[in-house]
């Protein structure tokens, strides 16, 4: 339900507060996201970093309301700030929309878009690339088929697909991995969305193409002035692309702040561990690859207290395994969820 126009913080595009997502299954309920809060500002790139199963993709799927069955948002709010032509801002509560409602579809068509990890499976195998880009263009605005086709060729050229007049009639399996990823990006930026959600855009492609994709996203952000939510397990990607990062572990954001600050001075023991493992790889001293001991507990397992305590190097018995830590604000722009800082505060 859209609330009447109201003055919100003009620079905030979307505000996620205390988001919970759960998957009820026969074996029990999996709490994939437990109380996540973050905001994305206009023109900003937020990176969400975490291991597999940390809930980072699920959070973005909740924003688009495309959670796979039987997932559902059980608590929290996702507030979308839509800029109207007259300059006013209208806030829409996404969690209150039906996931197949026309309001939700309107947001998906014009306001946000998605890039997925595997372009091969994220694009239909039996429709041409052009067909799928044109579909998006025509959903977003009133264009004839011919206009949309010309626009699609322009888009494909702008993302660096050579010979787009020919490629537009190709099927996904006729393109190389890099070209497919570019085609998906062309489709995503089709209606000049205000938020581009990139879910592991560099995981499925090889290293040289990774670099190209990242440069492409950077230049697109500069020219289109859109916000990007980039989801990845790769600290290198966020280091180059993101302004701020959120580190997720077991469905919670354990640390959030400007990318430079966190990389220079990580506070949460988990973030510290993550950075150490990357740094030790960088020195390519194979004997001393630092890892975080232990594994992510199974989603069904209930971990009392802080979810990271079984693997934590700064584990405080009696505290960390009993009480869940609260969010602690370290600076105006930084927060961490750890007992170490809570007790000091």
């Amino acid at each position: 339900m859209a609330t009447p126009s109201l003055r919100a913080d003009a620079s905030t595009l979307v505000e996620v507060t205390d988001l919970h997502v759960e998957f009820p299954t026969r074996e029990g309920v999996v709490h994939a996201v437990r109380g996540v809060s973050f905001a994305i500002r206009e023109g900003e790139t937020l990176g969400i970093v975490g291991e597999s199963g940390s809930g980072k993709s699920v959070s973005s799927q909740a924003m688009l309301r495309i959670l796979p069955r039987p997932g559902r948002i059980s608590r929290g709010s996702i507030r979308w700030h839509q800029r109207l032509p007259d300059g006013a801002v209208r806030a829409t509560e996404i969690t209150e929309l039906g996931d197949r409602s026309s309001q939700m579809n309107a947001l998906r068509r014009r306001e946000m878009s998605l890039i997925m990890q595997e372009p091969m499976s994220a694009l239909s195998p039996v429709h041409t690339i052009g067909n799928q880009i044109v579909e998006r263009l025509r959903l977003g605005g009133s264009m004839t088929r011919a206009e949309a086709r010309l626009k699609a060729i322009d888009l494909m050229r702008s993302v660096g697909i050579p010979n787009p007049e020919k490629r537009i009639d190709a099927y996904t399996f006729e393109l190389s991995g890099g070209m497919r990823q570019r085609a998906m990006i062309a489709m995503a930026i089709g209606n000049a969305p205000r938020l581009l959600i990139a879910d592991e855009p560099t995981t499925a492609v090889d290293v040289t193409i990774q670099a190209q994709v990242i440069r492409l996203l950077q230049s697109l952000q500069d020219s289109l002035r859109m916000s990007i939510l980039i989801i990845t397990h790769d600290l290198g990607v966020v280091a180059t692309l993101a302004h701020r990062i959120a580190v997720m572990y077991r469905g919670e954001i354990v640390e959030l702040g400007p990318v430079r600050d966190i990389l220079k001075d990580p506070r949460h023991p988990y973030t510290q561990g993550l950075l150490r493992s990357v740094a030790s790889l960088e020195t390519s001293d194979e004997d001393s690859v630092a890892t975080i001991p232990g594994v992510v507990p199974h989603p069904f397992e209930v971990v009392p207290g802080c979810p990271f305590h079984p693997r934590c190097s700064a584990f405080m018995p009696g505290v960390c395994d009993r009480v869940a830590p609260e969010r602690t604000r370290l600076a105006p722009d930084r927060e961490v969820r750890c007992h170490i800082y809570q007790s000091r505060a």
Binding site: F23, T25, E27, V30, A32, G50, S52, G53, S54, K56, S57, V58, Q61, L67, P68, G71, M116, Q117, E118, E200, T203, V207, Q210, A211, I214, I231, H233, D234, L235, G236, V237, A239, T240, S277, V278, A279, L281, E282, S284, P299
Partner: peptide, 20 residues
């Protein structure tokens, strides 16, 4: 600038199929 040296990602990581 660690991108090139990152460990290979496990396939199908955290994708739409979700955890349960």
């Amino acid at each position: 600038n660690s991108r090139q040296d990152d460990p290979p990602a496990p396939a199908g990581e955290d994708s739409g199929a979700a955890a349960p």
